[in-house]
Design a binder for these strands. Structure first.
Lengths: 143, 143
DNA sequence: ATAGATGCAAATGTTTTGCAGGAAA
DNA sequence: TTTCCTGCAAAACATTTGCATCTAT
């Protein structure tokens, strides 16, 4: 079984917080990681249902919230209003294709630095940011 | 009554599309403009209810959708999952205070240009973007 | 007169909560 | 055996839709 690092991180978090290590939590973490992020609660449920029909939607919501607290996942709200979960890692932004739904991550040092400068101008202290470019990807554009 | 330009823009749009000019639409446009954007459907409803108790939530949703189509408003989805409407104008980004909820708009030519460069790298054609910095504003930060 | 708008109530879709039974510590 | 989890059903939200009624054209 892959994802040993994350599984251990979860185990450690559960132990530290006197929470219980259940089969459901393992399954959900595993399916979430295999999906490589940007997945909705409902999509997770679909994927899980085939192998483990018992696991309910409620548990998925609760477990994803737990994974967020444990620092293994983050919630994202793109423009369609549905919550998506992605694998936690810092400083990256998204290109979203509005035709096929493809999501590409990118990172830009220069933009990060500029953000800080702008925030400082208004006396803001930035804790996190979101930066998304919506358009058509190379397979979907017509021009 | 202020907002003559926008009122006329609405009137023109309604006429062009064979839609009807109702009192409700005028009121909603007026309250929306007075609020200077970033307002939720529910907040609009609150503000309107005092003067015009008859106007229902449904009509506000429908009218805001209409104003978006008419190019007078735009929908925004910040990270709390509630739809906000803002006055339509291009190329600006947001600083959002997660303590007091204050929203400041900013604009940065350099970031815009960089976005294009990054998109090109992936063969993307950018149609719109969102860029939000979340943190604490000068009144709410503690350090 | 007629197409279109309104407001209520009911439906929808997503996420959360209450609770009784079940499993891990 | 105690504490925490789970899954169901029901609630809570924000938003949309069906429909009978009303209104601007």
């Amino acid at each position: 079984m892959a994802h040993e690092v994350e599984r251990e991180a979860l185990a450690r978090y559960l132990e530290d917080h006197h929470l219980k290590h259940t089969k459901q939590r393992d399954v959900i973490l595993d399916v979430f990681l295999k999906a490589e992020g940007h997945i909705t609660s409902d999509q997770l449920h679909q994927k899980i249902r085939s192998e483990h029909p018992g696991i309910g939607h409620t548990t998925i919501y609760r477990t994803m919230k737990l994974l967020c607290e444990a620092g293994l996942a983050t919630e994202r709200h793109f423009d369609d209003g549905v919550t998506r979960y992605e694998i936690e890692h810092e400083h990256h932004d998204h290109l979203v294709c509005t035709r096929c739904g493809k999501i590409i991550e990118f990172e830009c040092q220069m933009i990060e630095a500029t953000q800080e400068k702008i925030a400082a101008r208004y006396g803001f202290r930035v804790l996190r940011h979101r930066h998304e470019l919506y358009g058509h990807c190379k397979d979907c554009r017509e021009d």
